[in-house]
Design a protein around this nucleic acid. Structure first.
Lengths: 125, 125
DNA sequence: CATTGCAGTCTACAATTGTCAACTGTGTAT
DNA sequence: ATACACAGTTGACAATTGTAGACTGCAATG
């Protein structure tokens, strides 16, 4: 929730982060490049820039191992929590409840979602 | 939820939108300027630029009335819904339920929030 | 009617973001 | 030992964003 983290990951960078998050282990650029080249159609140069920028802003750690291996310094959960908090601050007057209420009132949730959430709320507390 | 809207309102622009949303009626720049100059410490020029950009991107309508009056073309609800959908797509695999689950599991909600939500979920269905 | 203040428009400029090419050094294959 | 491929670095360039000055014309005020 603290907004002084090395967050502020941009759209393209987020794609790199997702790859690393889902990999679950440090990856060499080779692999990052292959995956994103295919998935996004980006040139190797583009991918290398994104990885570098993420390292610069501290969102990715690079560890020397013959060739560098890259891994996130912030988890997907943490980042999602930060971005969600940011949204709540900016658009829901800082109230998470307002956000949920908006989802419930819009058609953002299916019946199944609602059922599952009801279940969750029952368990909580 | 459709992302082809004239959305993508930036941080500074959002402050202008909020002012207009909360005003609930078309405002002349004079008023926008006064409020934001005080609230944000921005120069008049800055505020005029932001308003112009919002008009350009179609988020604000300008109506001639001796001097121009400005009003949003998209409601706060609509924009919030769009931005929330965007977040859900980008970080919660398109599942609103995942977002809510994350809020429940994190400490994003107070006990009071939880109570009120439980109430909401009871009524829904 | 002349003055003044400010709305509206144009221009500007640095920082960030999306994309990528060029260069450099080194590990791997021949 | 040599060559090749590619990781890592540097630089680049257009679009967007944050912030603001300058100019122009109208509208209110004396």
């Amino acid at each position: 929730m603290s907004d002084h983290l090395a967050c502020k990951i941009t759209g393209s960078e987020l794609e790199v982060m997702k790859l690393l998050w889902h990999a679950g282990e440090a990856l060499p650029v080779t692999e990052i490049r292959e995956k994103l080249q295919e998935a996004k159609g980006w040139e190797p140069a583009t991918i290398k820039t994104l990885v570098s920028r993420l390292v610069s802003k501290g969102a990715v750690r690079q560890e020397k191992r013959n060739v560098y291996f890259y891994s996130p310094t912030i988890s997907e959960k943490e980042y999602s929590a930060w971005a969600t908090g940011d949204l709540i601050t900016r658009l829901y007057h800082g109230s998470a409840r307002e956000l949920v209420a908006a989802l419930v009132n819009a058609d953002g949730l299916t019946q199944k979602d609602l059922d599952e959430l009801r279940q969750m709320f029952k368990v909580e507390d």
